[in-house]
């Protein structure tokens, strides 16, 4: 399996995401923001960081990067797409996911090990037990997930809330939402960083690995 990892100017966790892909057992393919087409790949990761400095609004400029047209097309065609932190922000800006990520309610950047509950079993979450509790780091200044009540109700009703914060909401997100999927289930955006929880040596746990093994499971089982 080949999983692409996009580097925008200002991407920071692209190396980490590539490492996580490798540890999960796939090949990581580095993608450049200025490329207009995707090479032969099976899935795409939009990594964390501050794309284009996150000036204007987080993810607002990256959404217009040349590679994003190809990513949006691929996502609509069913290719699994994962957006982590800044990548989640980009996915919302690109309208692949509903809602928006706003400034943390306490107004500070915050990095700590966060307890989460896995809430669904889609392309990027099927390797977890339903309701499994995991610990994965969060680190962001603008991770407060907001959407109108109808959208939130719909997300809940259709099983599209993928991760929920446990033991304290770190940013004021509506309904403790940490990550959501699109209708088809192939696109996941989440604020916590699963790529920082793939090695016992460097992470608070290895709970993040499940996100990457999920997609391999999904791809192996998916009809071609």
């Amino acid at each position: 399996m080949r999983i692409g990892v996009v580097t925008f100017p200002g991407s920071l966790d692209d190396t980490d995401a590539s490492r996580a892909v490798r540890i999960a057992g796939a090949e990581a393919v580095r993608l450049w923001h200025a490329d207009k087409r995707l090479p032969m790949i099976d899935a795409v990761v939009l990594p964390g960081g501050f794309s284009y400095g996150d000036y204007l609004r987080c993810g607002a400029i990256a959404r217009f990067a040349p590679i994003m047209d190809a990513v949006v097309d691929a996502a609509r065609g069913g290719m699994p797409v994962l957006g982590i932190c800044n990548g989640f922000q980009v996915l919302c800006e690109a309208h692949l996911l509903p809602g928006a990520l706003t400034r943390n309610q306490h107004l500070r950047f915050r990095n700590h090990d966060q307890a989460l509950r896995v809430e669904n079993a889609a392309a990027w979450t099927n390797a977890y037990e339903p309701g499994q509790q995991v610990v994965i780091p969060v680190k962001h200044g603008e991770g407060c997930y907001v959407a109108d009540e109808r959208t939130l109700d719909e997300l809940e009703a259709t099983g599209r809330v993928a991760f929920r914060y446990l033991g304290g909401n770190p940013n004021g997100s509506r309904r403790d939402i940490a990550g959501i999927t699109n209708e088809a289930g192939n696109v996941l955006g989440l604020m916590p960083h699963p790529e920082h929880a793939v090695e016992a040596l460097t992470g608070p746990s290895t709970d993040g690995l499940g996100v990457f093994t999920s997609v391999l499971k999904h791809l192996a089982g998916a009809p071609s």
Partner: peptide
């Protein structure tokens, strides 16, 4: 200097034991 977050730093039960065993 003001509460850093809406909620205290979580010390998740069960989660804390993960790195310990590790």
């Amino acid at each position: 200097f003001g509460a850093a977050a809406a909620t205290p730093t979580p010390v998740p039960v069960g989660a804390e034991s993960e790195p310990v065993t590790e």
